[in-house]
Simulated assay, not measured.
Amino acid sequence: MPARKNQHYVPQHYLRAWATNEQLEVFHLDSEGIFSEGTSAVCSRDYFYGNPPIVETELAGLEGYQARPINRIREGDNLTDLTGQTLKLLYSFVTTQRSRTKATKETIRSGDPFLREAVKADLDSNQYNDSIEWTSDLTEEEKEDTLVDASLLGTHQYIISLGVFGYISISDLKPVMLYNVTDQDFIISDAPTVHDIPQYKHNHEITVAGLSNRGLQIFCPIDKYRTLLLYDPAVYRFDTNSKKQILIKSPSVVDQLNLLQFHNAEDIIMFDSSDESYIRSLYERSDEVRQREERTISLETESGIAKELPITPAYQIPSLSPNLPNCTTMTHLPYTKRRPASQSQKEKNLVNKMFNEAGAPDLGLIYAIRTFESFLDLE
């Protein structure tokens, strides 16, 4: 196999916490089958980030840095042991992981019909004659496919760059570790980072939560015993121990946290020692939490033609929220779409500047990764 052809959208270093001898038990949502599969084979696609694999090479270096806080926690460090640079790496891992998945890419691809119509109009008007030299005898449909795929890939590369710098948007969120002391393990999916807004989602009919929303909670499994929770401290208070832990002693709460993975999953659930009957029992309950509402967004072409585009975003807020212990909610605080302390605009301005300077999406993502490494003075 050519070097870096097989490109992961969930890193192997992350998946290994649920593996034994590099093997995972994998539940497939479509077939309901359970199979043993290697960490090298799951959550990956050929040339997922493009070919040649220059972006994949940069992402591999980024993964090495972002693995540092994950590995430290798995080796016994607590959140109280992580400061400064290491916490930023942890937050960046959480936001990057959400942005790079197949689920994100498929949501982008839902705009394919609209984009294809615009590309066809541009080709018909010979707009690309001076900027593209076609190197082979492609049909008009093949030219459309090439341009659409390039545009969709470029959009994904931009979103991944926002994920890399997502720690800026969520730097005001507080961390707590949900520590599982029951006999039932935490599980993981191919879209492991879950956003929720339990305080406001029902009254305000919120289906999708961004990094800057008030009342945000972000769940990210770390291993079979730990799930990281980042939360809006203006809305929630958690009574933790001295290690910033909340001990999860109730099997029902473990079930609720595991159901979040069924809610978010695109294709598969992965686990180690959980028995098959437990996984299937959660699958039977997944309708309790899994939400996939269709939304309509308005898009406008450069020529001013407006289109209404129906999409079903992969990343939606779960229907039900875990009943977490030691949590107090500030019910008096009114809802506003954005947290005043979030610096999401600073993040977007920074990434936009880098992409404008780079001139191409793949170069923009590479520039973003290298700038991130420079900002954090990583070695």
Rank of each mutant, 00 (worst) to 15 (best):
E25F: 08
V55C: 10
D196G: 15
T240Q: 04
R74S: 05
D30Y: 01
L173C: 05
L211Y: 07
S125W: 07
R109N: 13
K174G: 01
L299R: 04
V42G: 00
S286T: 10
M330G: 02
P11R: 07
I317T: 10
S273V: 09
F271E: 02
V26G: 00
S92P: 10
T135C: 07
E300K: 13
I305E: 13
F271R: 06
V55D: 08
P221E: 00
Y236T: 00
T39H: 04
V253K: 01
D149S: 15
S374Y: 13
T336E: 13
R285N: 10
I54G: 08
Y367M: 14
C220I: 12
P334Y: 02
A150H: 11
F219H: 15
C327F: 01
H332F: 11
P313A: 00
L29M: 05
T101N: 06
P53W: 06
N356W: 07
S161Q: 02
V181N: 03
S136C: 07
Q316A: 01
G166F: 05
H156M: 04
Y278H: 07
S40K: 06
R338S: 12
V289S: 12
L79G: 02
T182D: 00
W18Q: 11
L62K: 04
L378C: 13
S151F: 15
S44D: 02
F375T: 12
Q85S: 13
S189K: 05
G154E: 00
E144R: 06
V181H: 03
D362R: 15
